[in-house]
Each structure stands twice: as C-alpha cells, then as structure tokens.
Design a protein around this nucleic acid. Structure first.
Lengths: 213, 213
DNA sequence: GTCTATATTTCGATAGAC
DNA sequence: GTCTATCGAAATATAGAC
C-alpha cells in the first residue's frame, strides 16, 4: 500500500481517533463536524479534504477499529499451551477488556442509533466484528467439547449467555456513568469472574438442548 | 388530580407516544421537533404549548413509561400460587417481553446517547426502572433461597447473568434489524427458554461465591 | 389551543485564495 | 493541505393573530 493512500496519513488517523471519541460520547447526530474540527485543531473545511462526508467518516471509524482487537482474541483461540478451561477464561477476560474498554467494543449503542438510517454501518459492524467474536468463542468451546472437557450443551444458549452480560455491563456503565454507586453496582472484575465461573460450570455439567442444538 | 393538569390531556399523551416512537427509531439528536409535529398532525409551534422543551419532552417519555411494565412484574413476584421455579420462569418471560417489545424496555441505547448531556434522564431511568426490575427479580430469588428451592449462590453474578442476555438480545435485534438472518441468529423464544433453563440449573445447583456475596 | 411567520443558531458541505 | 468566507437547509424556540 502506498504511503499517500486514503487510509494512510497520520492526519486522517488522528481525525478517525478524535471522531470515534466524539461519536462515543455524543452520538452520531450529536457530533458535529465543527466540534470535530475544533477537537483536531483544524477548520471545518479542512476536514473535508480528508473525509468525503460525515457518514463515510462514521463507517471508517467502525470498520477500521476492530482488527487489532480481534487479533488478540484469535491468538487466544490458537494458543495450544492452554487447557480448554483456561483458554475460555482468557477469551472471556479479553471479551470484557474489548467490550468495556476499547472504542470499537463500546460502539454498540452508536450502531443502534444509526442502523435504521444507514444499514451498511450495522452490516459492517456485524459481519466484521460481532460475528467474528462469536465465531472465535464458538471455536474455543467446540475444541473443549471435542476434547471431552465440556459436556454437550445448547450452543445458542451458551453463546448468548457468554456475550449478554459483557455487552450489558458495558452499556450499563456507559448509561449510568454518573451514578454514585457505579463501581458497586457494575464492577467489571467481579462480574467477569463470577460470570466466567458460571459459564464453565454449565459447560462442564452440560445443558439441556431444546431440539438438537 | 385535576383534569387540566400537566400530565392529563389526551393530546399530551399522544405527543409522548409519538415522541417515544421517534426517539426509539431515530435517536434523540436525530429526532426533530418538526418531524414530531408532523407525526402528530400539528404545527411545530403548537408542540410548545404542551411541552416546554425537547429535553423535558424526552425526560417525560422516559419517566412516564415504565409504571405499567413494572406492575406486571410485581404481580408475578407477589403471586403466591406459583412454585419458586415457575415464579422465576414467569418473571424472566416478562423481562423478555418488556425488554424486547415495550417502548421503555427498548430505551437503553437512547439513554446511552444522552446520558452525558443530561444525566438526570439516565438517573430517572436507572432509579425508576432498571433498579426496580433488579429489585423485583432479586426478591423472587431470595424467596426461593429461603424456601430451599435454590442453593446459595453469588447474587451479583446471577443478577447480571439474568439481565445481561435479555438486554443484549434486544439491543442486537435493534442494531441488526436489517440483517437477513435476524430470526435465526437472535430468536427471542429460543434464547429466552434456554437462558431460563440455565439460570434455574445454576440456582438449583448453587454457585461459588468469591467473597461472601 | 392551533395557526402563520419568523428570529436565531447551527448544521453539513463547498468555493476559492494561498 | 489549510485557511476564510459562505451557501442552503434544517435545527430549537418564540411572537402574535385568531
């Protein structure tokens, strides 16, 4: 890739970074190009030299953010030195880190905001990120099942049981960031550890399967 | 309460209803007072006869929506004719209905959007709705624990394990409403039944408690 | 209580100098 | 590649007739 390509310049990367920050804090419609220009120390017109439109900017923020996060998750999936239990533990810890801390992981409410107006953003987020995450965790569980570490279970139910609390915790912490008891009510480490232990308990014991899941 | 009080008129109720619909579909910043006026068959200026501002309108939409939903949940909590297992099953079914179908249950992404700009909306949503829901479900579980139907467990973990998948399912269904495989990937009834069965399995078996939860 | 008309601001985006 | 200046549209909200 040439140095002057669309995705390459340092200025553009800074714009994407600042824009992601603003979108996460103010929403899509609540983020103005003027505010973004100010955050970048530029005039508004200069932004349009780097980005064709606000919508294209948003799509770029979504699609260029998740590759690094997924790489870390894939590395855990492929780590042959771990036991099946520990591999899932590590993956869930990584899921919590991604979903609570990373920009792309915190983007779900944003996607919900814009999904009706440009479904392509939602589609990119689902295919490039959510569905990848589910696939990686699914592979980790399938491996444990083949090895006999985990008992037969309802795949769909376990999948939602793994991802549900993580996403909701991140959403709650964002919604109620100003709540005085935030850390007591929504503590990341305690929820993560308890959640992980219960998922492993279910996987080892097996769960009822409604209809051949 | 007098008939001409602020909360009473039919027109105001219609405005709140239409506004909730628009907010849910377009977000807060994405919903204009003009569009709302058009949806109500009014001129924009007439709206301001019923509502002092867009922000106050939003707060009203949030705070005046959840009482009926919570009443249904409280009725299940107080139903003495149910077994402890069935009481929790009914409550979780109601949680799914509220979170996926009802306007107030689908408001979480909206709260996330505006929470930094007017925290009072987030506060009202948390204190009047979320924390009420958690309290009701917590009481149902505590009753089962007293009766010996459920074994000792980590309260915080179970709480997040109950609410997490419901909220995330509703959020996913909204984000990916245009996804062709929506019903296969995010099916309400299957996730709900599997989720409920696993929660009951954990409650009956008991779970490890990190530090005296 | 609803209307027409408008004040005022801000929005996304563009033109053209340098 | 960044700037000043501005366009046209749309935003929230208000004034005042009826």
């Amino acid at each position: 890739m040439r140095r002057s390509d669309e995705a390459g310049t340092a200025r553009r990367e800074e714009i994407l970074r600042r824009a992601t920050e603003l979108f996460l804090n103010e929403g899509f419609a609540g983020t103005s190009m003027s505010a973004l220009a100010q955050a970048c120390g530029l005039q508004k017109a200069s932004l349009y030299h780097h980005v064709p439109s606000k919508e294209a900017l948003f799509i770029a923020c979504v699609t260029e953010g998740y590759n690094r996060e997924l790489a870390a998750l894939r590395a855990i999936r492929d780590d042959a030195a771990l036991t099946d239990d520990d591999r899932l533990r590590h993956a869930m810890a990584e899921l919590y880190r991604i979903t609570v801390d990373s920009p792309v992981g915190r983007m779900s409410p944003l996607i919900a905001e814009v999904s009706l107006r440009f479904p392509e953003a939602a589609r990119a987020f689902h295919d490039g990120f959510i569905s990848q995450e589910h696939g990686i965790v699914g592979a980790i569980i399938a491996r444990g099942l083949e090895n006999g570490s985990f008992a037969p279970h309802d795949h769909l139910g376990i999948e939602h049981l793994i991802f549900g609390p993580v996403v909701t915790l991140a959403l709650s912490r964002r919604m109620f960031a100003s709540h005085p008891a935030l850390e007591e009510t929504y503590p990341v480490a305690r929820v993560r550890d308890s959640h992980t232990a219960m998922v492993l308990q279910l996987l080892r014991a097996g769960t009822a399967m409604p209809d051949g899941g």
